[in-house]
């Protein structure tokens, strides 16, 4: 049905066609079943338009003149009026009835919904477990990390103690070597003394011997000064200087006599006796004339510089 046909039908129903157009429509109504059916549908829709108030003005007047003046038209209008008011109520009741009839079918829906709820609850439970597990893993990891930190600190402490032990061991080894050297030195001196004793006993006496003196740092005067008496046969004087600052890598000593002339300037070896550090200075006895002497002990730093440490005093007495 074209829109032109629809317009023609509407004009026909509202008696708005010319005589020849109307006759043409009427003949088509008689011969064409589909067209006649379309006329009845359009007629019905026009009645509905009138009842709903959608039809206005001239069209409404034409409709009333066409439909309301005939018994058939009034039946159509009455029917459509009843239909328009009653059908929505009937349809609503039918929908409610169908809904109540379909309740048995609701149980699968309810079951499905319950199943969905059960699935949701299961998923929630799994989620809670996962969260708890994650929290537990997090705490365990923190605990493990702190344990690792603690163990690492312990390892570092043990390593440090081990290093200290090694240093101490090295120091002990050095002390041992020095003791050995000192021991060798003493044995050599003992051997020298024995040789000298033997020579004395077997041949003419010679002035061979060692005089020993231990000095503390600081200038001393009067009776506080140590006095050395060089007796005949003693050709070496061994002076041991107590060292207050044992941190130098080496030591030198400068012995200055009364005249201010330097007698000896030696690089000395360090000796440790118990907890005390000493440096040993050996001088030929012939060079020590009676009088006062001052020894200046010099320390040698790691950079090779020489620093004065302390003065020492002693006096050589007349023979």
């Amino acid at each position: 049905m074209s829109s032109e046909d629809e317009r023609t039908i509407r004009r026909y129903l509202l008696q708005d066609l010319a005589e020849d157009e109307r006759r043409s429509v009427e003949e088509k109504m008689m011969a064409d079943n589909a067209f006649f059916e379309e006329i009845t549908f359009a007629e019905d829709e026009l009645v509905s338009e009138y009842i709903s108030g959608a039809l206005k003005g001239v069209e409404r007047q034409r409709f009333e003149q066409s439909f309301l003046t005939t018994p058939q038209g009034r039946l159509d209008v009455n029917f459509n009026e009843a239909f328009r008011t009653h059908i929505p109520k009937v349809a609503g009741a039918v929908v409610a009835q169908m809904a109540s009839r379909s309740r048995p079918f609701a149980s699968p829906v309810v079951s499905f919904w319950r199943f969905q709820r059960a699935r949701a609850a299961l998923a929630l439970g799994v989620m809670i477990i996962l969260v708890a597990l994650s929290a537990w893993l997090f705490v365990a990891e923190r605990h493990r990390q702190s344990e690792i930190d603690r163990l690492q600190a312990g390892v570092q402490r043990v390593e440090k103690e081990l290093a200290d032990q090694r240093n101490h061991q090295s120091q002990l080894q050095r002390d041992f070597q020095e003791s050995q050297e000192r021991n060798s030195d003493l044995e050599r001196q003992l051997a020298d003394l024995r040789n000298a004793r033997d020579r004395i006993g077997q041949s003419e006496p010679v002035g061979i011997g060692i005089l020993s003196l231990i000095l503390s740092p600081g200038r001393t005067r009067g009776s506080a000064r140590q006095t050395l008496t060089i007796t005949p046969g003693k050709n070496t004087v061994e002076i041991r200087l107590k060292v207050a600052f044992p941190d130098y890598i080496g030591y030198r000593a400068e012995v200055v006599g009364k005249s201010g002339v330097s007698i000896s300037h030696q690089r000395l070896k360090v000796r440790r006796v118990r907890s005390e550090t000493q440096v040993i200075l050996r001088l030929p006895a012939a060079k020590l004339a009676p009088g006062d002497y001052e020894i200046t002990l010099l320390g040698i730093t790691a950079q090779g510089k020489t620093e004065p440490i302390a003065p020492y005093n002693f006096t050589v007495a007349a023979k």
Partner: peptide
């Protein structure tokens, strides 16, 4: 003469239409 447009049908007609409508549905 052309008939005038008659007055609307009384409410009873509409009610009768409703009953017939129910029966026919």
């Amino acid at each position: 003469v052309s008939l005038p447009i008659p007055a609307p049908d009384p409410p009873e007609v509409l009610e009768a239409n409703h009953r017939c409508l129910d029966k026919c549905l």
